[in-house]
């Protein structure tokens, strides 16, 4: 709390290249299995399912043959500001029981399910729908051995609490543990990456420390193709997207009618 207004030591962030993303959904599956995300017999209820990494599909709305499609994987944005200039995400200041905070060591927005009382105020405050409530008791199909495949590194959530993407924080702890065994305190860039980053077959996801100029993410976010979701709300997400398509970048935010100027194609620098 004392450190809240200080800058975190590291600022882990993610860059997702939408030009590379094929919408295969591997990141979604990898995330769910890595983080013991509960499944339900009927997963088609998209209003109450849990998917820390959610996959959106958008189109440019044009008729064939001009239709274009883009997939947007959406983890927790790990915002840095609440849109009003305060140095915490919109969800953190509203939490009644201090169940969610910005981690001072990593800049990751933490969520502690055993502290959460399930008031859902954070869900109301998050414009990205990145937070999920456990409407049911955790369910892992019985007799199929799925319980045995639960990761001991991530606690299984109980019903009635909110959960969300943690940038696979346990992987950070794992990497730190290994570094300490080798007598180091600092992590190397490749030592800590999230499950979705590792799983993406197209290599569309890059993960690293935004505070470290040598990390690939810090270089990627300077690209002309880089943008964030709902940037106008000023929540300063640490998840960046890359796209060479103007209409995709436009879809990431709301614009007033007078701001909708004709789309200018972006020169690709390769």
């Amino acid at each position: 709390m004392k450190h809240e207004h200080n800058k975190p030591l590291h600022r882990y962030g993610m860059v997702i290249d939408l030009d590379k993303c094929t919408g295969c959904g591997t990141c979604v599956v990898a995330c769910a299995s890595e983080n013991n995300v509960s499944v339900r017999p009927d997963e088609s209820d998209k209003k109450r399912f849990i998917s820390w990494m959610q996959l959106y599909m958008i189109t440019n709305g044009k008729e064939y043959p001009y239709t274009e499609v883009c997939y947007i994987p959406r983890p927790c944005m790990h915002c840095e500001e609440d849109g009003h200039g305060n140095p915490h995400p919109p969800c953190v200041s509203v939490c009644v029981a201090t169940a969610t905070r910005v981690d001072i060591n990593t800049g990751i927005v933490s969520q502690i399910p055993t502290r959460c009382i399930g008031c859902r105020y954070c869900q109301a405050a998050c414009p990205y729908h990145a937070r999920y409530f456990n409407w049911w008791d955790a369910y892992f199909p019985k007799g199929k051995g799925l319980e045995r495949y639960l990761s001991p590194e991530v606690s299984v959530r109980m019903r009635g609490v909110v959960e969300k993407c943690t940038f696979c924080h346990h992987r950070y702890m794992r990497a730190k543990r290994k570094a300490e065994a080798e007598g180091r305190r600092e992590l190397k860039e490749e030592e800590y990456i999230t499950a979705c980053t590792e799983a993406c077959p197209a290599g569309a996801i890059t993960f690293g420390d935004l505070n470290n100029p040598k990390h690939k993410v810090s270089q990627l976010i300077k690209s002309d193709r880089a943008f964030r979701l709902l940037e106008r709300l000023n929540t300063k997400p640490k998840v960046y997207y890359l796209s060479s398509k103007e209409w995709v970048r436009r879809m990431a935010d709301n614009y007033l009618p007078e701001e909708l100027k004709p789309v200018k194609p972006l020169a690709l620098r390769r």
């Binding site: 200041s93 009644v96 029981a97 169940a99 502290r115 399930g118 009635g160």
Partner: peptide
């Protein structure tokens, strides 16, 4: 609230 038994957290762990 999802976990009524934890209602007292509002007072004890108040943000």
């Amino acid at each position: 609230i999802g976990q009524p038994l934890r209602g007292w957290f509002i007072f004890w762990h108040a943000n």
